[in-house]
Design a protein around this nucleic acid. Structure first.
Lengths: 219, 219
DNA sequence: GTGTATATCTCGGGG
DNA sequence: CCCCGAGGTATACAC
Protein backbone atom coordinates (compact mmCIF):
# COMPACT_ATOMS: atom_id res chain seq x y z
CA UNK A 1 0.00 0.00 0.00
CA UNK A 2 1.24 3.43 -0.98
CA UNK A 3 0.38 6.49 1.06
CA UNK A 4 1.01 9.92 -0.39
CA UNK A 5 0.33 13.18 1.43
CA UNK A 6 0.16 15.92 -1.17
CA UNK A 7 -1.32 19.23 -2.14
CA UNK A 8 -3.51 18.21 -5.03
CA UNK A 9 -6.57 18.97 -7.13
CA UNK A 10 -8.71 16.13 -8.41
CA UNK A 11 -11.15 15.78 -11.31
CA UNK A 12 -13.42 12.82 -11.85
CA UNK A 13 -15.29 12.28 -15.11
CA UNK A 14 -17.50 9.25 -15.30
CA UNK A 15 -20.87 8.49 -13.87
CA UNK A 16 -20.85 12.15 -12.88
CA UNK A 17 -18.41 15.03 -12.96
CA UNK A 18 -16.71 15.95 -9.71
CA UNK A 19 -13.98 18.48 -8.95
CA UNK A 20 -11.79 18.93 -5.88
CA UNK A 21 -9.93 22.27 -5.59
CA UNK A 22 -6.27 22.28 -4.61
CA UNK A 23 -5.69 21.29 -0.97
CA UNK A 24 -3.61 18.93 1.15
CA UNK A 25 -4.96 15.39 1.20
CA UNK A 26 -4.07 11.73 1.55
CA UNK A 27 -3.83 9.69 -1.64
CA UNK A 28 -4.11 5.98 -0.90
CA UNK A 29 -3.15 3.47 -3.58
CA UNK A 30 -3.83 -0.18 -2.82
CA UNK A 31 -2.15 -3.16 -4.37
CA UNK A 32 -5.13 -3.91 -6.59
CA UNK A 33 -4.64 -0.44 -8.10
CA UNK A 34 -7.59 1.28 -6.52
CA UNK A 35 -7.02 4.92 -5.63
CA UNK A 36 -8.79 6.91 -2.90
CA UNK A 37 -8.35 10.56 -1.97
CA UNK A 38 -9.11 11.27 1.69
CA UNK A 39 -9.62 14.50 3.60
CA UNK A 40 -9.04 14.69 7.34
CA UNK A 41 -12.69 14.06 8.24
CA UNK A 42 -15.98 12.85 6.92
CA UNK A 43 -16.25 9.21 7.97
CA UNK A 44 -14.52 6.52 5.99
CA UNK A 45 -15.71 7.55 2.55
CA UNK A 46 -13.04 9.20 0.41
CA UNK A 47 -13.76 12.49 -1.35
CA UNK A 48 -12.90 10.93 -4.68
CA UNK A 49 -11.80 7.48 -5.80
CA UNK A 50 -11.38 4.98 -8.61
CA UNK A 51 -11.82 1.30 -7.93
CA UNK A 52 -9.96 -1.50 -9.61
CA UNK A 53 -9.71 -2.65 -12.31
CA UNK A 54 -7.99 0.47 -13.58
CA UNK A 55 -4.76 1.80 -15.03
CA UNK A 56 -2.66 4.42 -13.24
CA UNK A 57 -0.34 6.53 -15.39
CA UNK A 58 1.96 8.64 -13.28
CA UNK A 59 3.65 11.68 -14.79
CA UNK A 60 5.38 14.43 -12.77
CA UNK A 61 2.63 16.51 -11.16
CA UNK A 62 -0.18 14.60 -12.84
CA UNK A 63 -1.67 11.16 -12.27
CA UNK A 64 -4.22 9.80 -14.67
CA UNK A 65 -6.35 6.87 -13.55
CA UNK A 66 -8.68 5.29 -16.09
CA UNK A 67 -10.91 2.25 -15.95
CA UNK A 68 -12.29 0.00 -18.71
CA UNK A 69 -15.67 1.80 -18.62
CA UNK A 70 -13.95 5.00 -19.70
CA UNK A 71 -14.21 6.72 -16.35
CA UNK A 72 -11.28 8.96 -15.52
CA UNK A 73 -9.69 10.37 -12.41
CA UNK A 74 -7.08 13.08 -12.87
CA UNK A 75 -4.94 14.09 -9.90
CA UNK A 76 -2.95 17.28 -10.32
CA UNK A 77 -0.17 17.38 -7.75
CA UNK A 78 1.27 20.67 -6.59
CA UNK A 79 3.57 19.39 -3.86
CA UNK A 80 4.33 16.01 -2.32
CA UNK A 81 4.74 16.20 1.45
CA UNK A 82 5.21 12.51 2.12
CA UNK A 83 5.33 9.35 0.03
CA UNK A 84 5.67 5.91 1.60
CA UNK A 85 4.96 2.31 0.64
CA UNK A 86 4.22 -0.61 2.92
CA UNK A 87 4.02 -4.33 2.36
CA UNK A 88 0.82 -5.55 3.98
CA UNK A 89 0.34 -9.02 2.58
CA UNK A 90 -2.99 -10.67 1.85
CA UNK A 91 -5.67 -10.05 4.45
CA UNK A 92 -7.35 -13.07 6.03
CA UNK A 93 -10.64 -11.20 5.76
CA UNK A 94 -13.56 -10.26 7.92
CA UNK A 95 -15.67 -12.71 9.87
CA UNK A 96 -19.23 -11.46 10.31
CA UNK A 97 -22.01 -12.73 12.45
CA UNK A 98 -25.56 -11.65 13.00
CA UNK A 99 -26.57 -10.74 9.48
CA UNK A 100 -29.73 -11.66 7.63
CA UNK A 101 -28.17 -14.63 5.84
CA UNK A 102 -27.47 -16.32 9.14
CA UNK A 103 -30.94 -15.53 10.43
CA UNK A 104 -32.39 -17.11 7.28
CA UNK A 105 -30.20 -20.16 7.76
CA UNK A 106 -31.31 -20.58 11.35
CA UNK A 107 -34.99 -20.17 10.51
CA UNK A 108 -34.76 -22.54 7.54
CA UNK A 109 -33.71 -25.20 10.03
CA UNK A 110 -36.28 -24.25 12.62
CA UNK A 111 -39.33 -22.88 10.82
CA UNK A 112 -41.60 -24.78 13.23
CA UNK A 113 -40.64 -22.12 15.80
CA UNK A 114 -42.45 -19.56 13.63
CA UNK A 115 -45.68 -21.56 13.72
CA UNK A 116 -46.59 -25.03 14.89
CA UNK A 117 -46.45 -27.61 12.10
CA UNK A 118 -44.65 -25.38 9.60
CA UNK A 119 -42.44 -27.28 7.13
CA UNK A 120 -39.78 -25.87 4.82
CA UNK A 121 -40.30 -26.37 1.07
CA UNK A 122 -37.28 -24.39 -0.12
CA UNK A 123 -35.11 -21.37 0.50
CA UNK A 124 -34.82 -18.51 -2.01
CA UNK A 125 -37.93 -19.58 -3.92
CA UNK A 126 -37.83 -17.74 -7.26
CA UNK A 127 -40.72 -15.65 -8.47
CA UNK A 128 -40.90 -13.55 -11.61
CA UNK A 129 -40.08 -10.53 -9.52
CA UNK A 130 -37.36 -11.85 -7.21
CA UNK A 131 -36.63 -14.57 -4.67
CA UNK A 132 -38.72 -15.18 -1.53
CA UNK A 133 -36.54 -16.01 1.48
CA UNK A 134 -38.47 -19.10 2.56
CA UNK A 135 -41.34 -21.03 1.00
CA UNK A 136 -43.08 -23.23 3.57
CA UNK A 137 -46.26 -25.24 4.09
CA UNK A 138 -48.29 -24.73 7.24
CA UNK A 139 -49.93 -27.48 9.32
CA UNK A 140 -52.93 -27.48 6.98
CA UNK A 141 -50.70 -27.74 3.89
CA UNK A 142 -51.17 -24.14 2.76
CA UNK A 143 -48.24 -22.35 1.12
CA UNK A 144 -46.56 -19.67 3.25
CA UNK A 145 -44.16 -17.08 1.80
CA UNK A 146 -41.76 -15.83 4.46
CA UNK A 147 -39.67 -12.70 4.21
CA UNK A 148 -36.88 -12.37 6.77
CA UNK A 149 -35.21 -9.12 7.79
CA UNK A 150 -32.82 -8.18 10.51
CA UNK A 151 -34.87 -5.05 11.08
CA UNK A 152 -38.48 -5.11 9.97
CA UNK A 153 -39.30 -1.93 8.09
CA UNK A 154 -41.99 -0.91 5.68
CA UNK A 155 -40.11 -1.70 2.49
CA UNK A 156 -39.69 -5.29 3.64
CA UNK A 157 -43.46 -5.65 3.87
CA UNK A 158 -43.85 -4.10 0.43
CA UNK A 159 -41.34 -6.57 -0.92
CA UNK A 160 -43.35 -9.47 0.49
CA UNK A 161 -46.61 -8.03 -0.87
CA UNK A 162 -45.08 -8.03 -4.37
CA UNK A 163 -43.96 -11.62 -4.05
CA UNK A 164 -47.39 -12.72 -2.81
CA UNK A 165 -49.09 -10.98 -5.70
CA UNK A 166 -47.08 -12.98 -8.23
CA UNK A 167 -47.20 -16.26 -6.30
CA UNK A 168 -51.00 -16.05 -6.16
CA UNK A 169 -51.01 -16.67 -9.91
CA UNK A 170 -49.37 -20.06 -9.49
CA UNK A 171 -52.17 -22.65 -9.19
CA UNK A 172 -49.77 -25.01 -7.44
CA UNK A 173 -49.29 -22.49 -4.64
CA UNK A 174 -52.54 -20.49 -4.45
CA UNK A 175 -53.72 -19.41 -1.95
CA UNK A 176 -50.50 -18.15 -0.35
CA UNK A 177 -50.15 -16.76 3.16
CA UNK A 178 -47.54 -14.15 3.97
CA UNK A 179 -45.32 -14.01 7.04
CA UNK A 180 -42.92 -11.20 7.92
CA UNK A 181 -40.13 -12.17 10.30
CA UNK A 182 -37.55 -9.93 11.95
CA UNK A 183 -35.73 -9.37 15.23
CA UNK A 184 -37.59 -6.11 15.64
CA UNK A 185 -40.54 -4.89 13.58
CA UNK A 186 -41.32 -1.17 13.38
CA UNK A 187 -44.90 -0.11 14.20
CA UNK A 188 -45.31 1.30 10.68
CA UNK A 189 -44.38 -2.06 9.18
CA UNK A 190 -46.75 -3.91 11.52
CA UNK A 191 -49.60 -1.64 10.51
CA UNK A 192 -49.03 -2.18 6.78
CA UNK A 193 -48.61 -5.91 7.28
CA UNK A 194 -51.88 -6.14 9.21
CA UNK A 195 -53.62 -4.22 6.44
CA UNK A 196 -52.35 -6.72 3.88
CA UNK A 197 -53.18 -9.79 5.97
CA UNK A 198 -49.55 -10.56 6.62
CA UNK A 199 -48.56 -12.10 9.94
CA UNK A 200 -45.65 -10.52 11.81
CA UNK A 201 -43.29 -12.59 13.94
CA UNK A 202 -40.46 -11.15 16.01
CA UNK A 203 -37.70 -13.64 16.69
CA UNK A 204 -34.85 -13.78 19.18
CA UNK A 205 -31.58 -14.34 17.40
CA UNK A 206 -29.72 -15.62 20.45
CA UNK A 207 -32.55 -18.03 21.35
CA UNK A 208 -32.49 -19.39 17.78
CA UNK A 209 -28.77 -19.98 18.03
CA UNK A 210 -29.49 -21.85 21.24
CA UNK A 211 -31.97 -24.10 19.41
CA UNK A 212 -29.44 -24.72 16.66
CA UNK A 213 -26.81 -25.65 19.19
CA UNK A 214 -29.25 -27.97 21.00
CA UNK A 215 -30.22 -29.68 17.73
CA UNK A 216 -26.61 -30.08 16.66
CA UNK A 217 -25.68 -31.64 19.94
CA UNK A 218 -28.29 -34.38 19.44
CA UNK A 219 -26.20 -35.89 16.67
CA UNK B 1 -4.49 12.72 10.04
CA UNK B 2 -2.70 9.84 11.69
CA UNK B 3 -1.56 6.81 9.70
CA UNK B 4 -0.47 3.69 11.52
CA UNK B 5 0.79 0.55 9.82
CA UNK B 6 0.54 -2.28 12.32
CA UNK B 7 0.02 -5.97 12.83
CA UNK B 8 -3.36 -5.97 14.51
CA UNK B 9 -6.53 -7.87 15.25
CA UNK B 10 -9.85 -6.06 15.34
CA UNK B 11 -13.18 -6.80 16.98
CA UNK B 12 -16.37 -4.88 16.38
CA UNK B 13 -19.41 -5.30 18.59
CA UNK B 14 -22.46 -3.31 17.72
CA UNK B 15 -25.08 -3.70 15.04
CA UNK B 16 -23.33 -6.99 14.35
CA UNK B 17 -20.24 -8.82 15.54
CA UNK B 18 -17.21 -8.78 13.28
CA UNK B 19 -13.71 -10.11 13.86
CA UNK B 20 -10.47 -9.54 11.97
CA UNK B 21 -7.65 -12.00 12.68
CA UNK B 22 -4.14 -10.70 13.28
CA UNK B 23 -2.54 -9.28 10.13
CA UNK B 24 -0.72 -6.19 8.88
CA UNK B 25 -3.06 -3.33 8.03
CA UNK B 26 -3.40 0.44 7.83
CA UNK B 27 -5.17 2.18 10.70
CA UNK B 28 -6.36 5.63 9.64
CA UNK B 29 -7.46 8.11 12.29
CA UNK B 30 -8.98 11.36 11.05
CA UNK B 31 -9.16 14.62 12.93
CA UNK B 32 -12.87 14.15 13.66
CA UNK B 33 -11.89 10.96 15.52
CA UNK B 34 -13.18 8.43 13.02
CA UNK B 35 -11.10 5.28 12.71
CA UNK B 36 -10.82 3.05 9.65
CA UNK B 37 -8.86 -0.18 9.23
CA UNK B 38 -7.77 -0.83 5.64
CA UNK B 39 -6.37 -3.90 3.92
CA UNK B 40 -4.29 -3.60 0.75
CA UNK B 41 -7.23 -4.13 -1.59
CA UNK B 42 -10.98 -4.10 -1.85
CA UNK B 43 -12.05 -0.68 -3.06
CA UNK B 44 -12.37 2.23 -0.70
CA UNK B 45 -14.40 0.59 2.01
CA UNK B 46 -12.39 -0.28 5.11
CA UNK B 47 -12.57 -3.75 6.63
CA UNK B 48 -13.74 -2.26 9.87
CA UNK B 49 -14.36 1.25 11.13
CA UNK B 50 -15.96 3.53 13.68
CA UNK B 51 -17.35 6.86 12.59
CA UNK B 52 -17.39 9.99 14.69
CA UNK B 53 -18.67 10.92 17.19
CA UNK B 54 -16.66 8.46 19.25
CA UNK B 55 -14.06 8.20 21.98
CA UNK B 56 -10.67 6.61 21.38
CA UNK B 57 -8.84 5.25 24.43
CA UNK B 58 -5.32 4.22 23.55
CA UNK B 59 -3.44 1.82 25.83
CA UNK B 60 -0.22 0.01 24.87
CA UNK B 61 -1.21 -2.75 22.45
CA UNK B 62 -4.89 -2.04 22.71
CA UNK B 63 -7.12 0.70 21.34
CA UNK B 64 -10.73 0.92 22.41
CA UNK B 65 -13.08 3.01 20.32
CA UNK B 66 -16.62 3.50 21.56
CA UNK B 67 -19.50 5.58 20.31
CA UNK B 68 -22.53 7.02 22.12
CA UNK B 69 -24.74 4.16 20.85
CA UNK B 70 -22.60 1.69 22.79
CA UNK B 71 -20.93 0.20 19.74
CA UNK B 72 -17.34 -0.78 20.29
CA UNK B 73 -14.26 -1.31 18.19
CA UNK B 74 -11.29 -2.99 19.84
CA UNK B 75 -7.94 -2.96 18.07
CA UNK B 76 -5.33 -5.32 19.49
CA UNK B 77 -1.90 -4.27 18.28
CA UNK B 78 0.91 -6.77 18.04
CA UNK B 79 3.53 -4.59 16.39
CA UNK B 80 3.65 -1.04 15.06
CA UNK B 81 5.58 -0.80 11.79
CA UNK B 82 4.98 2.88 11.12
CA UNK B 83 3.18 5.72 12.85
CA UNK B 84 2.95 9.19 11.32
CA UNK B 85 0.74 12.25 11.65
CA UNK B 86 0.05 14.91 9.04
CA UNK B 87 -1.59 18.31 9.16
CA UNK B 88 -4.06 18.48 6.30
CA UNK B 89 -6.19 21.49 7.10
CA UNK B 90 -9.87 21.88 6.29
CA UNK B 91 -10.90 20.57 2.89
CA UNK B 92 -12.69 22.95 0.49
CA UNK B 93 -14.99 20.06 -0.45
CA UNK B 94 -16.30 18.32 -3.53
CA UNK B 95 -18.20 19.93 -6.41
CA UNK B 96 -20.59 17.57 -8.19
CA UNK B 97 -22.57 17.74 -11.39
CA UNK B 98 -24.74 15.42 -13.42
CA UNK B 99 -27.00 13.82 -10.86
CA UNK B 100 -30.74 13.27 -10.88
CA UNK B 101 -31.51 16.93 -10.28
CA UNK B 102 -29.98 17.88 -13.61
CA UNK B 103 -31.88 15.16 -15.45
CA UNK B 104 -35.10 16.52 -13.94
CA UNK B 105 -34.17 20.03 -15.02
CA UNK B 106 -33.51 18.93 -18.59
CA UNK B 107 -36.75 16.95 -18.84
CA UNK B 108 -38.78 19.78 -17.33
CA UNK B 109 -37.69 21.87 -20.30
CA UNK B 110 -38.22 19.13 -22.84
CA UNK B 111 -41.09 16.93 -21.66
CA UNK B 112 -42.45 16.75 -25.21
CA UNK B 113 -39.55 14.37 -25.90
CA UNK B 114 -41.15 11.91 -23.48
CA UNK B 115 -44.42 11.89 -25.41
CA UNK B 116 -45.81 13.99 -28.23
CA UNK B 117 -47.92 16.89 -26.98
CA UNK B 118 -46.84 16.60 -23.35
CA UNK B 119 -46.88 19.92 -21.48
CA UNK B 120 -45.33 20.69 -18.09
CA UNK B 121 -47.69 21.82 -15.32
CA UNK B 122 -45.11 22.02 -12.54
CA UNK B 123 -41.99 20.45 -11.07
CA UNK B 124 -41.96 18.91 -7.59
CA UNK B 125 -45.75 18.71 -7.39
CA UNK B 126 -46.63 18.12 -3.75
CA UNK B 127 -48.73 15.20 -2.66
CA UNK B 128 -49.61 14.23 0.89
CA UNK B 129 -46.83 11.65 0.80
CA UNK B 130 -44.07 13.54 -0.97
CA UNK B 131 -43.28 15.45 -4.15
CA UNK B 132 -43.72 14.02 -7.66
CA UNK B 133 -40.83 15.03 -9.91
CA UNK B 134 -42.98 16.35 -12.77
CA UNK B 135 -46.70 16.90 -13.18
CA UNK B 136 -47.69 17.18 -16.86
CA UNK B 137 -50.72 17.10 -19.13
CA UNK B 138 -50.71 14.84 -22.17
CA UNK B 139 -52.01 15.75 -25.65
CA UNK B 140 -55.56 14.85 -24.56
CA UNK B 141 -55.28 16.98 -21.40
CA UNK B 142 -54.94 14.07 -18.98
CA UNK B 143 -52.72 14.47 -15.92
CA UNK B 144 -49.43 12.57 -16.01
CA UNK B 145 -47.25 12.02 -12.93
CA UNK B 146 -43.62 11.52 -13.89
CA UNK B 147 -40.96 10.02 -11.66
CA UNK B 148 -37.37 10.51 -12.82
CA UNK B 149 -34.40 8.39 -11.79
CA UNK B 150 -30.88 8.07 -13.00
CA UNK B 151 -31.27 4.30 -12.79
CA UNK B 152 -34.77 2.89 -12.83
CA UNK B 153 -35.17 0.29 -10.12
CA UNK B 154 -38.13 -1.29 -8.46
CA UNK B 155 -38.38 1.05 -5.48
CA UNK B 156 -38.70 3.97 -7.87
CA UNK B 157 -41.81 2.33 -9.34
CA UNK B 158 -43.16 1.74 -5.83
CA UNK B 159 -42.61 5.39 -5.07
CA UNK B 160 -44.57 6.46 -8.15
CA UNK B 161 -47.37 4.00 -7.34
CA UNK B 162 -47.74 5.62 -3.90
CA UNK B 163 -47.90 9.09 -5.43
CA UNK B 164 -50.51 7.98 -7.99
CA UNK B 165 -52.65 6.47 -5.26
CA UNK B 166 -52.85 9.82 -3.49
CA UNK B 167 -53.20 11.90 -6.66
CA UNK B 168 -56.17 9.75 -7.77
CA UNK B 169 -58.06 11.17 -4.79
CA UNK B 170 -57.81 14.70 -6.21
CA UNK B 171 -60.85 15.35 -8.44
CA UNK B 172 -58.94 18.08 -10.27
CA UNK B 173 -56.37 15.55 -11.41
CA UNK B 174 -58.18 12.20 -11.65
CA UNK B 175 -57.59 10.09 -13.66
CA UNK B 176 -53.80 10.28 -13.47
CA UNK B 177 -51.38 8.40 -15.73
CA UNK B 178 -47.98 7.35 -14.44
CA UNK B 179 -44.71 7.56 -16.31
CA UNK B 180 -41.38 6.21 -15.11
CA UNK B 181 -38.34 7.82 -16.70
CA UNK B 182 -34.69 6.83 -16.33
CA UNK B 183 -31.50 6.46 -18.32
CA UNK B 184 -31.72 2.71 -17.80
CA UNK B 185 -34.67 0.74 -16.42
CA UNK B 186 -34.08 -2.68 -14.85
CA UNK B 187 -36.22 -5.61 -16.07
CA UNK B 188 -37.71 -6.10 -12.60
CA UNK B 189 -38.83 -2.48 -12.55
CA UNK B 190 -40.31 -2.77 -16.05
CA UNK B 191 -42.28 -5.83 -15.00
CA UNK B 192 -43.77 -4.11 -11.98
CA UNK B 193 -44.45 -0.91 -13.94
CA UNK B 194 -46.33 -2.86 -16.62
CA UNK B 195 -48.30 -4.56 -13.88
CA UNK B 196 -49.32 -1.17 -12.48
CA UNK B 197 -50.13 0.39 -15.84
CA UNK B 198 -47.13 2.69 -15.68
CA UNK B 199 -45.33 3.62 -18.89
CA UNK B 200 -41.54 3.28 -18.92
CA UNK B 201 -39.34 5.64 -20.90
CA UNK B 202 -35.57 5.36 -21.15
CA UNK B 203 -33.85 8.65 -21.98
CA UNK B 204 -30.40 9.57 -23.28
CA UNK B 205 -28.76 12.11 -20.97
CA UNK B 206 -26.24 13.35 -23.54
CA UNK B 207 -28.92 13.74 -26.23
CA UNK B 208 -31.03 15.77 -23.77
CA UNK B 209 -28.08 18.02 -23.06
CA UNK B 210 -27.76 18.48 -26.81
CA UNK B 211 -31.39 19.58 -27.04
CA UNK B 212 -30.86 22.01 -24.18
CA UNK B 213 -27.82 23.46 -25.89
CA UNK B 214 -29.72 23.82 -29.17
CA UNK B 215 -32.63 25.58 -27.43
CA UNK B 216 -30.31 27.90 -25.53
CA UNK B 217 -28.49 28.91 -28.68
CA UNK B 218 -31.76 30.14 -30.23
CA UNK B 219 -31.76 33.09 -27.84
C1' DG C 1 -34.80 14.19 15.91
C1' DT C 2 -37.17 11.10 12.67
C1' DG C 3 -38.27 9.70 8.22
C1' DT C 4 -37.29 9.73 3.26
C1' DA C 5 -34.58 9.50 -0.95
C1' DT C 6 -29.96 9.28 -2.99
C1' DA C 7 -25.28 7.12 -3.91
C1' DT C 8 -19.43 7.36 -8.83
C1' DC C 9 -23.19 3.68 -3.17
C1' DT C 10 -20.03 -1.17 -2.09
C1' DC C 11 -20.30 -5.95 -1.76
C1' DG C 12 -21.62 -10.67 -2.52
C1' DG C 13 -24.43 -14.35 -4.72
C1' DG C 14 -26.74 -16.61 -8.60
C1' DG C 15 -27.94 -17.34 -13.40
C1' DC D 1 -21.29 -10.56 -17.42
C1' DC D 2 -25.58 -8.51 -15.48
C1' DC D 3 -29.37 -8.76 -12.23
C1' DC D 4 -30.71 -8.51 -7.69
C1' DG D 5 -30.75 -7.77 -2.66
C1' DA D 6 -28.29 -6.44 1.77
C1' DG D 7 -25.66 -3.11 4.26
C1' DG D 8 -22.72 -1.74 10.98
C1' DT D 9 -25.09 0.94 4.43
C1' DA D 10 -23.57 6.63 4.83
C1' DT D 11 -25.32 11.07 3.75
C1' DA D 12 -28.21 15.03 2.79
C1' DC D 13 -32.57 17.13 3.32
C1' DA D 14 -37.44 17.68 4.59
C1' DC D 15 -40.72 17.89 8.25
Amino acid sequence: MRLVIARCAVDYEGRLSAHLPMATRLIMVKRDGCVAIHADGGAYKPLNWMNSPNVVVEAPGRWMVTNPKGEQLIITIDEVLSDSSHELGVDPGLQKDGVEAHLQELLAGACHTLEDGMILVRREHRTEIGPVDLLCRDASGRAVAIEIKRRGEIDGVEQLVRYLEFMERDPALRPVRGMFVAQVIKPQAKTLAAERGIICVEVDYDALRGIERAQTSLF
